[in-house]
C-alpha cells in the first residue's frame, strides 16, 4: 500500500472538478493507497467532505511563514517540504497552468524525474503514459525515483467516488528563502467563463466562424448543455477569439466527454489538443474535410444552419 499525495487546486473556495480524477488515480490499482490531499491558501474543513468522498483520508492544509501566494518558488518549496514530511511515495497533480508550473519547480528542487500530462499512471510500477509527438503517439515512461512525480491531463481519468473518513491536519512549512520570482499582479479575464480545461463539453469554432460576434451562436448552444466555447488557431490568429480560447498544440490540451468542432478542418496540431476527448463531433461544409476521417460523428453542413438547429434540438 503506497502513500500518495495529491496537490489539490481550489478556485473560489471550491475544489475544482478536475481534481477528482487525480484523487481517483492516486488510490492506485488496488484502490487501497492512503491518499493525502495537500491544499494551500484554503480552509481544510470547508473542502474536507469533497476530498474524502474521493478517498482522501488526510487533508493537509499547508501554511508558510512567508507570503505563500507571492511566489511560485515559495509554494513549490512548501509542497516539496510537505511531501517529505508525510513521506509520500508519489505526488500527483493536474497538468493545468498552475499544476504544471508547480510540479516542474518541485521536480527541479527535489531533483526527481517527472512525467507530465499523463493520461494514465501506475503508481506501483512508477510509470506514466503520456503524449509524445503532438498526440500522435503515447509513450510509457518509467521513473527511477524516490518520490514519483506526475501531472495528469485534466478529465483524462474518470473520477470514481470512494468515501473514507478524513482528518484535517495543518502543516507549517519551514521558512525558506523568499523566492526569486514574484507575482506582482493578477489580471482577471473578461467574463468569469468556465475554463476550457475544466469543461465536460466543449464547442469549438474554427476559421469558418468568420467574425468574433458569431461566437455568440456557439455560446448560446453551449449554455444549453453547460459547455465551454473554444477556438482553433486560425480563428485566434484572425482575431475572432482570444488566445485563452485556443485548443491545440499551441493552446490548451483538453479531454472533455464531448467535443463539437464547428468549421474546423481537423489539422494535426488541433487534434494534438483534443484527441483524447471521449466523443468528437465534426460539422463542416466540406464532406472531404480531414476532420471526418478522425472524429466519431459527422454532419456535412453550414455551421450557421446546423448550430442553431442543434441548439434547438438540445433544449
Amino acid at each position: 500500500m503506497a502513500k500518495t499525495g495529491v496537490f489539490i487546486e481550489i478556485g473560489d473556495g471550491r475544489v475544482k472538478e478536475t481534481n477528482f480524477g487525480v484523487l481517483t488515480a492516486a488510490r492506485g490499482a488496488s484502490g487501497n493507497n492512503e491518499v493525502y490531499a495537500f491544499i494551500m491558501n484554503a480552509d481544510g474543513n470547508a473542502v474536507k467532505d469533497d476530498l474524502s468522498a474521493y478517498g482522501a483520508s488526510k487533508v493537509i492544509t499547508i501554511t508558510s511563514s512567508g507570503d505563500i501566494g507571492a511566489s511560485p518558488d515559495v509554494q513549490a518549496a512548501a509542497i516539496g517540504a510537505a511531501a517529505k514530511e508525510y513521506g509520500v511515495d508519489a505526488l500527483l497533480g493536474l497538468f493545468s497552468a498552475t499544476g504544471r508550473d508547480m510540479f516542474a519547480r518541485v521536480a527541479a528542487m527535489m531533483d526527481e524525474p517527472m512525467v507530465s500530462d499523463c493520461i494514465a499512471v501506475d503508481i506501483d510500477g512508477k510509470s506514466g503514459v503520456k503524449s509524445h509527438f503532438s498526440g500522435k503517439t503515447f509513450a510509457t515512461i518509467k521513473l527511477d525515483c524516490n518520490v514519483m512525480l506526475a501531472t495528469i491531463r485534466p478529465n483524462a481519468i474518470e473520477p470514481a467516488q470512494a468515501p473514507v473518513d478524513a482528518e484535517v491536519i495543518s502543516y507549517s512549512a519551514p521558512p525558506g528563502d523568499a523566492g526569486k520570482v514574484k507575482v506582482i499582479e493578477v489580471k482577471k479575464g473578461g467574463a468569469e467563463k468556465l475554463d476550457l480545461t475544466e469543461a465536460p463539453v466543449i464547442i469549438t469554432g474554427g476559421r469558418a466562424i468568420k467574425a468574433s460576434e458569431n461566437y455568440r451562436m456557439l455560446e448560446e448552444c453551449a449554455a444549453v448543455i453547460g459547455a465551454a466555447v473554444g477556438a482553433s488557431r486560425a480563428a485566434v490568429d484572425a482575431g475572432y477569439a482570444p488566445h485563452s480560447m485556443q485548443v491545440g498544440q499551441t493552446g490548451k490540451t483538453v479531454s472533455p466527454k464531448l467535443y463539437i468542432a464547428c468549421g474546423v478542418s481537423g489539422a494535426v496540431q488541433h487534434f494534438a489538443g483534443m484527441k483524447t476527448s471521449k466523443v468528437i463531433v465534426g460539422i463542416n461544409t466540406d464532406k472531404d474535410a480531414p476532420i471526418f476521417a478522425k472524429c466519431d460523428y459527422g454532419i456535412v453542413g453550414d455551421i450557421f444552419e446546423v448550430v442553431p438547429a442543434l441548439t434547438e434540438a438540445l433544449k
Binding site: P72, S96, A97, T98, K180, V181, K182, V183, I184, E185, V186, K187, K188, G189, G190, E192, K193, L194, D195, L196, T197, P242, H243, S244
Partner: peptide
C-alpha cells in the same frame, strides 16, 4: 503568463 480562463499573471524576476 496566461493562467486559465483568460486570467493573466504578471511576475517580476
Amino acid at each position: 503568463r496566461e493562467t486559465g480562463s483568460g486570467e493573466r499573471e504578471v511576475l517580476e524576476m
